[in-house]
């Protein structure tokens, strides 16, 4: 068991990770996606934050960010396996002497690293705000970490759907629908509505599975190790499901 765990981020995983990450910077999609994402995000946040007399706060930025993830990430993750199938390279990938879990984790890690890079590019905003007002850096950095974990949880779901189907559009729609539901379940007003109609434990459970709930709790400035554990488990669950789907395909036509 311990050797399985240490192999998870072993040499093979890192080789896959590096190739994937490099491929993002070789493909126009990553630039178009990154450019569009950053433009929309910074425009929306700057409109509210970079206004004369407005308080120097990153609140609008972290308010819009999850919504943009919801809109943009399914388009990015739908290709992850579908593209490998289209090119046929999945057959190479799964016949290299590498564990399926390592392939999945390497791919996942590369998307998260790419998104981390995009988030780094947004640091210009808090730096600008800090130059003209005062920014409380510790919570802002915490929120950045939370954002990345939140994005990771969405990537894990989207990647799972991409492994389920050959069709990119099906993967896209399935991701949008499931992520929207997960998103809404973390929304306090939605849970209030459920709370008045469902038993309390039930509403709590629904609320408890939503990554958005944990994102909000970190965004409030409270960084709890339980939130971190939650994101790890959430991603782990979907990545493991992804591995199972790929393994099950060995039984059929591949």
């Amino acid at each position: 068991m311990s050797n399985v765990i240490t192999s998870l981020w072993g040499r093979e995983t890192r080789v896959i990770f590096r190739r994937e990450l490099k491929s993002y910077f070789l493909s126009p999609i990553a630039y178009v996606f990154g450019g569009l994402f950053l433009t929309v995000l910074l425009f929306l946040s700057a409109k509210t934050s970079l206004v004369h007399g407005a308080p120097a706060t990153m609140q609008p930025f972290f308010l819009y960010l999850p919504w943009l993830f919801l809109i943009f990430l399914p388009g990015l993750t739908m290709r992850l396996w579908a593209e490998e199938r289209k090119l046929g390279t999945i057959e190479l990938l799964l016949t290299f002497p590498v564990r399926t879990s390592q392939v999945v984790l390497g791919k996942f890690g590369a998307v998260v690293a790419y998104l981390g890079f995009i988030l780094l590019l947004t640091l210009g905003l808090p730096l600008t705000l800090g130059a003209y007002g005062s920014i409380d850096w510790p919570p802002v950095l915490g929120q950045y970490v939370a954002s990345l974990m939140f994005a990771g949880s969405f990537v894990a779901v989207g990647m799972f759907w991409s492994s389920m189907t050959r069709d990119q559009i099906v993967a896209l729609l399935a991701s949008i629908v499931s992520l929207s539901v997960l998103f809404l379940l973390g929304n306090p007003s939605v849970i209030e509505f459920f709370g008045s109609n469902l038993p309390l434990w039930c509403a709590g459970l629904l609320n408890g599975i939503s990554p958005y709930k944990y994102f909000l709790s970190i965004a409030r400035g409270v960084f709890d190790t339980r939130d971190f554990i939650y994101f790890t488990c959430f991603c782990g669950f979907f990545l493991y499901a992804n591995v199972l789907v790929l393994k099950a395909r060995r039984e059929s036509k591949g």
């Binding site: 093979e12 896959i16 190739r19 090119l87 046929g88 057959e91 016949t95 290299f96």
Partner: peptide, 29 residues
Amino acid sequence: RALIGYLPESTPLYTDMRVDDYLSFCAEI
């Protein structure tokens, strides 16, 4: 799998890579 070199039908390749980068990746993995 470590003992085998495999060329699948219709020769799938990561077409966005350079020949040497691709081969280096295959050797490394």
